[in-house]
Amino acid sequence: MFSFCTDPQSLDGLPWLACYLTTGKHMAFYASFGTVLILLAITAPVALAFGFLGATAARARFRPLAWLGKGYIAIVRGVPDIAFFLFFVIALDQAFEWIRHKIKCPDWDQPIRQGNDFVVCPAAKLPLSTSPQIWHEIYGFFLAVLTFAIVYGAFSANVLYGAMRAVPKAQLETAEAYGMTPRQTFWRILVPQMWIYALPGLSNLWMILIKATPLLFLLGVEDIVYWARELGAAKQARFSDYPHGDWRMWYFLALLIFYLAFTKLSEVVLARVTARLSHGQATLGGTGRSAAP
């Protein structure tokens, strides 16, 4: 990176550190923070959407739909995350490839399961094995988002389901008395008022989601914990221009600071959102503000 970095062995102190911290490997480490933040930015709304659908389905009058919603919540909440990430992702990937296989290669006569191997026709591979590495990474990232969304969606569905039931019944009856249709009541009265009840539960989920990202490496996405571990591992002079001992402690310390700072930021934002949603609500947080003389 810097011009004086050509011969790191001759450096020490700050110049050495400056060179060390700007190696290609460290750049990949810094970039992985971006990966994690992007993952969170995409996963959170998608999971919330899954949750909203799940909760709406669970309280539907149409029985099979309600069973579907409740089944989704119960099953996903009951299975350990790690099992989901190990089993579900491979299953999901194979399901996608199997569907593509059925569409693209109807004449294929080889079995798909050959002993331990899962073999689909080349055109059904996802991504195609000829596509550049970046597509494989994007696909892995996509699978990660989907899995996170399904898992966290189930938890948030349960939170939202509870929140929808916490809205005072009088509010809904009044809406009905005004002649609103059930659909209007749902969107205009129930949904805007439920968020304040859902927020504590959702903020917990957000905090847990932030810390769950190391599960990414199980999917082949190289996240911050993978790089911290790799960079912190002892390096020998013959394999690296920057030999050092076991520095994992320092790298994990940096991660600790990152996670704490991110948690603090989240708390500040969540506190503001809470204040905003409480406004005018018939709750202690809401009335405390608006009822003051």
């Binding site: 290609g24 000829t130 494989h136 394999f239």
Partner: peptide
């Protein structure tokens, strides 16, 4: 199927395989 072969390795076992300073 194709001419592209994906080589899977661990990248943490020098001198067999490891990630160098460039991240490769």
């Amino acid at each position: 199927h194709s001419m592209t072969v994906r080589m899977g390795t661990e990248g943490a076992y020098p001198p067999y395989n490891f990630i160098n300073d460039k991240g490769e």
